[in-house]
Write a protein that binds this DNA or RNA. Structure first.
Lengths: 223, 223
DNA sequence: TAGATTGTTAATCGATTAACAATC
DNA sequence: TAGATTGTTAATCGATTAACAATC
């Protein structure tokens, strides 16, 4: 009698997983790496929570959800926890990502250091403008018409959408048709896509700045 | 006996305002502009909700919260609603923003078209590397040591933090000391700051991609 | 007027936190 | 053992949705 099929069934996990939870997992992982760098091999939920800015109960609940277990009285073994997380985030090998749109933002992402550090590699870029295409350079820039063949040949599942707002929906459709399953979208618009088959993470810079404009103005009204 | 002072008191609004609510407001605004472009002058909560992907009750609740009222039976007058929203987001005049860190991401943001369209202007950039500084070009690139003077002289309240992770906390501290009240942060780390005086919006690209890596993998386990 | 929509209150839903038994 | 921490259940909190009286 449930309205929609439970994500739990699809994922093999007990319960559905929401984005916040996955994001916290990513934050725990970053914190654990720092603790490990400091020489720790075990960590308690209260310390880890403090590092990330959540309660110890939240940490234990999240870990429990992903079947990450610790030792009563002994805390969590950092190496073991990180190994489980690496599996969840597919960190064993480089995460291959394609970039569509080699404009301002796109080119900046090609050179962004933060991705390399996390074993994320932009393996190819695509643009509709032939003038921007080139097979030289560390990462080839190919015509969008070659997207599907490339994605299928290389088994890429994740793409970055960094094209102007006007063409974003059309290019997203092409990415989905090519077999991309996860899209990081920089176009400041509401995209339509099949939510049961594709995940889209919107990075809306205008929206963030408008939020800040609101927030700082709210602060100004303080007595 | 309340634990923390209610944001409502600070903002002058009846109740506290959370980020999601402000983000929806920004989305309503974008949708209203489209409706207006199509020749509409009135809009009902159910249509607006559908355009943004929320229920009509959510629209009415949000509007009510910001004291945006409509006409029973007649819907909301688009022009009037947008005028109120323009006030909330301080859209009457260009929103001045400073950029700190003129690297990959920073330079891309300087040329990003999406900001101009929304009347957001990056008035100056700052970098610790003197080689990157230049007073020529559409937007001057100045040494970080000049930040405070510039911010105070121009009354800038919002800044973009686009420096490497290692220096992010230190530069954030300088921005806050300079009088910046809202920061859009691209460094993939947890920053410390006085939450009662400063608002930080984190744009963590690595985190978004890790979320996608998790999500697409979860989909793969589908039967 | 009759019908439809707002504005608001009440109900629901989900996520976070507190609490505590289990146990190392 | 005594003490401290996990793992989980129950309580709380807040946000979303449903429902409906008010009313244009």
């Amino acid at each position: 009698m449930n309205k929609k099929p439970d994500t739990a069934v699809r994922s093999g996990l007990r319960q559905a997983v929401c984005k916040n939870e996955v994001v916290r997992l990513s934050q725990y992982r970053a914190a654990l790496r720092r603790f490990k760098g400091l020489g720790f091999s075990k960590i308690y939920s209260n310390f880890l929570g403090e590092a990330v800015g959540v309660t110890s109960a939240q940490v234990r609940k999240d870990f429990s959800h992903f079947k990450i277990s610790g030792n009563k009285r002994g805390g969590y073994a950092i190496d073991a926890v990180m190994q489980t997380m690496d599996g969840l985030f597919r960190k064993e090998r480089a995460q291959k990502v394609v970039l569509v749109g080699a404009g301002n933002i796109g080119k900046a992402l090609l050179n962004y250091r933060g991705f390399q550090k996390e074993n994320i590699t932009i393996v190819a870029a695509f643009d509709i403008d032939p003038a921007k295409c080139s097979k030289n350079g560390a990462c080839p820039v190919l015509p969008v018409s070659a997207l599907k063949e490339y994605v299928q040949a290389h088994g890429v599942r994740i793409g970055i959408l960094a094209v102007p707002e006007i063409t974003a929906q059309q290019i997203l459709d092409e990415m989905i048709a090519a077999g991309i399953k996860g899209v990081m979208n920089f176009a400041p618009c509401n995209l339509r896509y099949p939510e049961d088959r594709v995940t889209v993470a919107n990075v809306n810079l205008v929206q963030e700045l408008e939020y800040l404009a609101f927030a700082v103005d709210q602060g100004r009204k303080t007595g």
